[in-house]
């Protein structure tokens, strides 16, 4: 009976996220492993960027994927794609960790210098996750094209969970400027992703 569930897919054809989540719901461990192969690295990279401690990042990612296994019924493919759901869950967990550890305050005090350790460069996926790679390229290209202040404001918001006024205080910029930077940056992100899809 288990063998009937754990069917390998035809070579070269990767199952869609929704299909894998249906198999996860049927308690097919290999489906979760495929999702880990697909999203493990971007999720770990995100969590490491926020938590900045490899051991803690590993624990958080472990927790995220085990939560995905335990709460697969909470994901409904009809409500949207898996990646946003997974990234949002990972981001929230990592930001929770920052708050719990009081790291946020310490890092704000130290943020005169960008002391984020340079992570090891990962090898690209052998196959699959093409859409993810394309989107990653788009997002990175967009972020590099933004003026320093605007990019920093968006990074503080997304990776450190700061609000408008916290960012303004941290950067020593007027609140209106920060709002305008973030709104403009997000608009460009939306347009850039729209182009990538078309």
């Amino acid at each position: 009976m288990l063998l009937a569930v754990v069917q390998p897919w035809p070579e070269g054809k990767q199952p869609a996220d929704g299909e894998l989540m249906e198999r996860v719901l049927r308690r097919d461990a290999s489906a979760l492993e495929t999702l880990y192969d697909r999203y493990g690295r971007p999720v770990y990279s995100l969590v490491l960027r926020i938590a900045q401690q490899p051991a803690s990042a590993e624990e958080i990612v472990q927790d995220v994927f085990l939560q995905l296994w335990k709460s697969a019924d909470r994901f409904q493919a009809s409500r949207g794609a898996l990646a946003p759901w997974l990234f949002t869950m990972a981001r929230n967990r990592a930001l929770d960790f920052l708050r719990l550890k009081g790291e946020k305050q310490r890092r704000r005090e130290d943020s005169q210098e960008d002391d984020f350790p340079e992570p090891a460069i990962a090898r690209p996926d052998a196959e699959g996750a093409i859409d993810l790679s394309r989107r990653a390229e788009k997002v990175r290209a967009l972020m590099s094209s933004l003026p320093d202040g605007q990019r920093k404001a968006i990074e503080l918001a997304y990776f450190e969970g700061m609000s408008h006024s916290e960012i303004a205080a941290s950067m020593g910029e007027p609140l209106g400027t920060v709002k305008s930077w973030i709104r403009g940056g997000l608009l460009r992100l939306r347009e850039s992703l729209k182009e990538a899809r078309s």
């Binding site: 971007p42 770990y44 490491l48 960027r49 946003p84 992570p119 990962a122 990653a136 788009k138 990776f159």
Partner: peptide, 10 residues
């Protein structure tokens, strides 16, 4: 998608 702006880690 901003998650994808994080530096890639092994």
């Amino acid at each position: 998608n901003l998650a994808l702006a994080a530096p890639e880690a092994q």
